[in-house]
Computed example of a mutant assay.
Amino acid sequence: MATPPPGYGAGPYGPYPPQQVPQPGPYAAPPGPYAVQPGSHPPPPGPYAPASAYPAQPGPSAPQPAYAVPPQGAGDGCRVCGCRPAAPATVRGHQGLLVVMRFLSLPGPFCRDCGTATYRRMSSDTLWQGWWGPLSVFITPFTLLLNLGPRAAFRRLAEPAGGFRPPLDPGKPLWRRPPALLLLVPALLVAVGVPALVVVGLLIREEAPPVLAVGQCVRNTGDWKDQDLVVTDCGSARAQFRVSKRLTTGAACAAGDFLSDPKYGGDGWTLNCLTPLR
């Protein structure tokens, strides 16, 4: 056992008494100025207090925004606004630039409103930009027909919800936009003009010349180079000639007779002999 150094515990004030452990009692001093008094609440935890010393008290959570939890089972969200449901369709457009041309496409997915707005915008642009080229005249109608598939897919979707921004405004229907109206004017002219031309042609078409038969009487309202023979009653004063013979190979008309135009023969080759009545 080590011996304490000389003078340990000795001094002008006498030896140090052994350390006494204070006993609790009615007049015992509190352990320290920061001790917790009976019946008081514990002080709030300091920045270095252990987290487990003061467990968090349960309380109401802050409300979450509507787009924080998207609908389940709706597939990928819209590429424009993030709303669901969305259809994975591709909208196309075309530009004819006289010598060159451009094929445009914008793949989805799109929600109902954003898809409809994209379809109407690209189809409207194609209606007035897609005709300015020799091949574009045929490609533009094909492009517009292709866009009918995505349009039908967008119309089958439910109302969009759960996005990070509002959907696009679809705007006016395609047929109410100026490019569509410009296309409808020539389309209506073609739709109305073709039947009108057919009806006018039927009304003013030249009647087929009559096929003359032996014994009929006719009158000529034209000249002999451009005959216009009209069948007339033989008892009428207006009758000028009687069809006396239908010429065949090797036959000839009598002296003083006239020859009818072959168009009155029925086959474009047969001639008739016309005998003057006076």
Score class of each variant (00 low, 15 high):
F258W: 14
W128S: 08
M1K: 07
P141V: 06
G201W: 10
N272E: 04
L212H: 00
A51T: 14
L229K: 00
Q37F: 10
T116D: 02
A152R: 15
G25T: 11
P30N: 05
R155E: 12
W269S: 10
Y16G: 04
P65M: 13
G73S: 07
T118I: 08
R120I: 10
G215S: 11
C78L: 06
G133C: 07
C253P: 02
S136K: 03
A252D: 14
T275Q: 14
P178M: 09
L183S: 07
V36F: 09
T221F: 04
P58V: 06
R156S: 15
G268A: 13
P33N: 09
V198D: 03
P43V: 08
P18K: 13
P107K: 09
L181G: 03
Y54E: 10
R165M: 10
L98V: 15
P24N: 12
G130I: 01
F138Y: 10
P17V: 11
V36N: 08
L197R: 07
Q23P: 02
P55T: 13
Q57N: 12
D113Q: 14
Y67E: 06
G171N: 04
W269T: 12
W224L: 15
K225S: 13
P70Y: 05
L212A: 05
P30W: 11
T248L: 13
M101I: 03
G193T: 08
A35C: 09
A87Y: 00
P26R: 11
E206K: 15
P47M: 08
P65D: 13
V190C: 07
V21Y: 07
P195I: 03
